[in-house]
Write a protein that binds this DNA or RNA. Structure first.
Lengths: 145, 145
DNA sequence: ATTTGACTTAGAATAATTCTAAACAATACT
DNA sequence: AGTATTGTTTAGAATTATTCTAAGTCAAAT
């Protein structure tokens, strides 16, 4: 698929505009790449996929676009153990599972309000605006996906 | 302080020996540096501190020593947002708080069994052997330390 | 039409970490 | 004890994800 759905296109230009960014073909294409495969790609993987849709795009632009999408809140960065940063357009609160065998990262749904409850656990000296929860281990046999 | 306490020295050579490593002056000194200041130093900071006790040590050796300490289970690596890896000799289960203003990282004690309970939350397709919980935000005024 | 400012691009620069190869040290083997 | 083996340390080179730079492009605003 090469075009954003109308809904996503709207969300994109709203979010970009709201944070003082322009909507550009490069940003649309990169966002589309992220929406089409929810597998937490690295910048390099995003670059490869985007290049197949827009051969003229450069690595620097992919980084710029990803940075714009992150700063307008449409995409989250996922960092695991100094591996290359991964990008994730899933905005609902969730945790991550990192498979030691394949290196892949999966979204793990969390019970409603759990992230906020974790933040409440903090003593008064700290005030958290984000909570990150990462599990590491292996997939049950037959669950490789 | 320049010498490990007897207790720590014992723990060190036990743990190293158990994982097929030798106990060396460099490893002792690096371990001592970590035990003396519990502020989650980066490899570079560990290098500077170690060099003041053992001027001949090299950066590569500091990395080697840290790697040995991690692999024998005496030290944990803490990775936050692609910043340089930090090293932490606190082995009891705990979370981390990352201050956006100072960049400093603090240990946050967690209720008994909480980390295991979080792991239980995972659906059967995942099996986690480690759980990592990181809060990000700012310190309450007057709590800078 | 021109200016302004944001965006894109290729390639250079940066920085944390790992690798390499040589020297060194400790243990194991005869 | 003397030698072989294996693990460790060292300096410096290599690697790699990411950021920076400077030039070129484009669209909106004057």
């Amino acid at each position: 698929m090469n075009q954003l759905k109308q809904m996503d296109r709207g969300a994109l230009s709203d979010a970009l505009g709201h944070s003082g960014h322009r909507t550009t073909p490069q940003r649309e294409t990169v966002f589309g790449v992220l929406l089409d495969d929810r597998d937490h790609p690295t910048a390099d993987e995003v670059y490869t996929r985007t290049k197949s849709r827009m051969p003229s795009i450069s690595m620097a632009t992919v980084y710029n676009c990803l940075e714009a999408l992150v700063s307008c809140g449409l995409v989250k960065q996922v960092n695991i153990e100094r591996e290359p940063t991964r990008y994730c357009p899933n905005l609902s609160p969730h945790a991550h599972f990192h498979c030691r065998e394949t290196g892949r990262v999966y979204d793990v749904p969390v019970p409603d309000g759990m992230m906020q409850n974790l933040a409440k656990m903090l003593s008064g000296e700290y005030s958290a605006d984000s909570v990150e929860l990462v599990f590491r281990g292996h997939l049950a046999k037959g669950q490789e996906k």
